[in-house]
């Protein structure tokens, strides 16, 4: 099954970070705390990326997700402070949502495990290749006209539009 080596330990640590962070986000009342837990979870994800031989994505994750989005969320939390803190944490449908989430998890898990451990499992001990494409390949792929240049350009457009949109929406209208 699993070898007990540094990879495994790293995996467990990062898993803890991710899941713990996620749980923290969902359960804390204090939003700053929630943001911090989010950052923790994102770190965990970044760690996963490293383990999965995608260093560029790990870097991007930290830079973009944590460095930009999480900070943005902090600002938003600060700008939208509610007056009272006595309000409920969860809304009325927490039970049903928990059930749904639980079932979803079971289903997903089943979808993950069955092919592996099931009768016709195809993933049992499949060898993993060690030859991995690097960041340079990613860079090439993103601008190669036969590959992903179009989505790349469209993504940039999307970002532009989002930026403009965010500015417009959040702008102070008192002029």
């Amino acid at each position: 099954m699993l070898e007990f080596n540094a990879q495994t330990i790293a995996f467990i640590v990062f898993a803890l970070f991710s899941l713990g962070g996620a749980l923290g986000v969902v359960t804390t009342r204090n939003l700053i705390h929630a943001t911090l837990y989010l950052i923790l979870s994102l770190f965990g994800a970044a760690g996963f990326f490293v383990l999965l031989s995608a260093p560029f994505l790990a870097a991007v994750q930290v830079l973009v997700y944590i460095g930009a989005i999480a900070i943005l969320i902090v600002f938003a939390v600060m700008l939208t402070r509610s007056m009272t803190r006595i309000s409920d944490l969860y809304n009325r449908q927490w039970l049903l949502s928990a059930i749904v989430a639980g079932i979803l998890f079971v289903v997903l898990l089943a979808g993950v495990i069955v092919p592996v451990w099931g009768v016709n499992g195809t993933q049992i001990d499949r060898p993993v290749s060690d030859v991995v494409a690097g960041t340079v390949d990613l860079g090439k792929a993103l601008v190669d006209q036969n590959q992903y240049v179009l989505p790349f350009e469209v993504a940039s457009l999307l970002l532009t539009a989002a930026m403009i949109g965010a500015i417009v929406i959040a702008r102070d209208d008192q002029e």
Binding site: N91, Q93, L96, S97, V100, I103, L104, V107
Partner: peptide, 15 residues
């Protein structure tokens, strides 16, 4: 009018 209820319904339906 509560979006979370709609989302819950979506989730249930998807399941």
């Amino acid at each position: 009018g509560r979006i979370q209820q709609y989302l819950l319904l979506v989730a249930v339906a998807a399941l």
